[in-house]
C-alpha cells in the first residue's frame, strides 16, 4: 500500500510548490499588462499544442515556456509553463499526471528565466551598442511618446523631450539615430545565444521534464520504489523524452528568434514589465 501513499505525498509536495509560486505571483499584485502578456503566451502554447495534437510529443509548450522565461523572467516562465499544462489539459484531459506536468513545464520555463533572462539583450556581439544612459532615456521617451496618453506628467515630459529632439541640433539627431540603431540591434538574438537556448531546451526537457513526469509512472507502475526501478522507468521513458527534446529544439530554433524579438519590441514600445513605477 505504501506506493500509493508515495503518490499522494508526491502530489502534496507538488501542489505545495505550485501554491507557493502562485501565492508569490498573487502577492506581487501583477499589473494588467503583465497578466495580459502571460495570458497571450499561455494561449499560444495551448493553441500550438492543439494544432499539432495528431503528432505524438509534438508540442511547443516547453519551447514557449522557455521563451517566456527568457523574455519576461523566471517567474513568468514558470507561470506560462504551469498554466499551459493545466489549461491544455482541459482539451486533452486531466488526470493523475496534471500536477506533474504543471511542475515539469513550469520548472523548464523557470530555469530558462534564471539562466537567460536579462542577459540575452545586453552586449550582443561586441557591436557598438553601449548607449549612454542619457541617450537611452531620450530613446525610451521617443518610443514611449507614441503610447503614453494616460499619464499627464509623463506627457509633459514627453513634450519637452520631443521639442528637444525636434530642435534642429545635429547632435540630438545623431544620438537618436545611433540609439535607434543600437536598440534595433539589441533586439536581435545572436546565433550563439540561440544555440545555447536550443541546447538548454533539449536538455531541460529530457532531464527536468523527463525526470519529473517519469517519477509519476514509477509511483504508479511499480510497488517497490528503488534505484533499479527508477532506472528502468527512466530507460522506458527515454525515447519519448528525447523525441520531445528534439521537438523542443526544433520549435526553439524556429520560434525563439521571431518571438523574442516581438516580445522585446512590445516591451520597449509599451514599457512592459518595468519594475519602476511612473
Amino acid at each position: 500500500m505504501a506506493v500509493f501513499n508515495y503518490y499522494l505525498a508526491a502530489v502534496a509536495i507538488i501542489v505545495l510548490a505550485l501554491l507557493l509560486m502562485f501565492v508569490r505571483f498573487e502577492g506581487r499584485r501583477p499589473k494588467a499588462r503583465e497578466l495580459a502578456v502571460i495570458a497571450v503566451l499561455t494561449a499560444l502554447a495551448v493553441v500550438g499544442r492543439a494544432i499539432f495534437f495528431m503528432l505524438p510529443q509534438f508540442k511547443p509548450v516547453a519551447a514557449i515556456a522557455i521563451i517566456a522565461g527568457v523574455a519576461l523572467g523566471a517567474e513568468s516562465g514558470f507561470m506560462v509553463g504551469a498554466l499551459s499544462a493545466f489549461l491544455g489539459n482541459f482539451i486533452f484531459g486531466h488526470g493523475p499526471w496534471t500536477p506533474f506536468q504543471m511542475l515539469a513545464f513550469g520548472s523548464v520555463g523557470y530555469f530558462a528565466g534564471l539562466l537567460f533572462h536579462g542577459v540575452a539583450w545586453q552586449g550582443e556581439g561586441g557591436h557598438d551598442c553601449a548607449v549612454k544612459d542619457k541617450d537611452k532615456k531620450i530613446l525610451e521617451h521617443v518610443d514611449g511618446a507614441k503610447m503614453s496618453k494616460c499619464d499627464e506628467k509623463r506627457c509633459c515630459e514627453d513634450k519637452k523631450i520631443l521639442e528637444f529632439i525636434q530642435a534642429p541640433t545635429s547632435d540630438t539627431r545623431r544620438i537618436v539615430a545611433q540609439a535607434t540603431e543600437a536598440l534595433s540591434h539589441n533586439r536581435r538574438i545572436s546565433s550563439l545565444r540561440l544555440t545555447l537556448l536550443c541546447l538548454y531546451g533539449g536538455l531541460s526537457v529530457v532531464v527536468l521534464y523527463g525526470l519529473i513526469v517519469d517519477i509519476l509512472y514509477l509511483l504508479f507502475f511499480t510497488e517497490s520504489v528503488s534505484v533499479q526501478s527508477l532506472l528502468a522507468v527512466l530507460a522506458t521513458g527515454l525515447p519519448f523524452n528525447v523525441l520531445q527534446g528534439v521537438v523542443t529544439i526544433f520549435f526553439l530554433a524556429v520560434l525563439a528568434r521571431p518571438m523574442l524579438e516581438k516580445l522585446e519590441r512590445a516591451k520597449q514600445k509599451f514599457g512592459l514589465m518595468q519594475k519602476v513605477e511612473h
Binding site: 494588467a32 495580459a36 497571450v40 518571438m259 516581438k262 512590445a266 509599451f270 512592459l272
Partner: peptide, 29 residues
C-alpha cells in the same frame, strides 16, 4: 503555419496590451 503563428503572435500581443490598458482605465487593480 509558422508564418501564420508569427503574425498571430504580433497581433495577439498588441491586442492584449489594448485589453490590458482598457482594463486599467476601468479600474483594474
Amino acid at each position: 503555419s509558422f508564418a501564420v503563428f508569427g503574425i498571430l503572435t504580433t497581433w495577439a500581443l498588441e491586442n492584449a496590451i489594448d485589453t490590458a490598458d482598457s482594463m486599467t482605465s476601468r479600474g483594474y487593480g
